[in-house]
């Protein structure tokens, strides 16, 4: 399945929906899921690993459909908005009251957030 050059967003969307219905799930293994889950500190049941492998695989397949498009005439972009250089002046503004900030944390001590012991240095 491929889209014509210059396809509008709506036709791309229709294309992706059509792909989703085919249930393509190759391209994301159980090992990939286990690895990503560990990076995200998620503890998954084996059945969840299978479920997410299938779902993440189909999402990746949808995105991969874009590679089927001929984009030679499309300039590369770093952001969907056609904006650059959004800046603010270096002038100070209000800060939050510390008591209010710390009251939102499970534990605080001496004006600081108190967290469980850390294993290892900052990456």
């Amino acid at each position: 399945m491929s889209l014509p050059v210059g396809a509008d967003y709506l036709s791309i969307l229709r294309h992706l929906v059509a792909l989703y219905d085919t249930g393509v799930t190759e391209g994301f293994s159980r090992d990939d899921v286990v690895y990503v889950a560990r990076l995200a500190r998620l503890d998954l049941e084996p059945s969840e690993v299978d479920l997410y492998a299938a779902q993440l695989g189909s999402i990746l397949d949808h995105v991969a459909a874009v590679t089927g498009l001929d984009t030679t005439a499309v300039p590369a972009t770093a952001h969907p908005l056609e904006l650059a250089n959004v800046l603010r002046p270096d002038t100070p503004g209000p800060t939050l009251p510390r008591d209010e900030v710390l009251s939102q944390a499970p534990h605080a001590e001496g004006g600081r957030f108190r967290v469980p012991p850390i294993l290892g240095e900052a990456p």
Partner: peptide, 24 residues
Amino acid sequence: STVTKLFCSCPNAFGSEPNTNVCP
């Protein structure tokens, strides 16, 4: 040595009382 932080207008200051130069 800016006056404020990189992405918000909190003061960029060394030696302030802990957690006083913070915002959302």
